[in-house]
Amino acid sequence: MSNNPKIMTIRTGILEENDRRAQILRRNFAKNKTTVINVVSSPGSGKTELLTVVSRELITKGLHVCAIVGDLSTDHDAKRLASSGAHTYQINTHGACHLDARMVKQGLKTLPWRDADILFIENVGNLVCPASYDLGETKRMVLMAVTEGEDKPLKYPTMFHSADICVISKIDLASVAEFDEQKAIQNIYDVNPDILIVKTSAKKRIGIEELVTNLLAK
């Protein structure tokens, strides 16, 4: 047996398997005309609160809403979101820092998602790991709360670069937090010139209508 190592060219994405699963999900979502939003942010940016308010708004419009909620543990967020009237399913990742396409597929089994006009996937609160994992979503929405400061996009460029919509949340707290909005917006565009920015406050119902319109836009 020769000791000379042989070379084999592979040239494939490291996450090939997840990407393949996500593509199948994306095709099924498109066929079913379900808009799917992958919602990402650090913990405490207000994902659940915003989605609860937005879901209520969509349901009032006569749309069907489903949501998959990812957390390391507890079903608190799924319960909160269900108060809007959305069908929810909680995934507990038991330590895993992100959702992947396999978990989403699993979650779909217990949700009436084929009736849904819109499906939210609330990812695990984390601005690093979920960035690399395609979930078959139509759009990716990243939240940054005014209380987090202006430089989040520069610290977590991969995530902000991968998103289609950036929500600046808790905008009602901007002056208390001494949030520099111009600087924040500049930082967001610096890492993603094509992103759409929407300012919201779930508590004060600011920007909700604008966000809903953009979520449903093709």
Binding site: M1, S2, N3, N4, P5, K6, I7, M8, T9, I10, R11, T12, G13, I14, L15, S132, H161, Y189, D190, N192, P193, D194
Partner: peptide, 20 residues
């Protein structure tokens, strides 16, 4: 000027292996 056209830098690939 800002540009969103990335040529390189987002890669996450397996290129090749050596084996016996």
């Amino acid at each position: 000027k800002r540009t969103s056209r990335i040529i390189k830098g987002t890669e996450m690939t397996i290129d090749r292996i050596t084996y016996e």
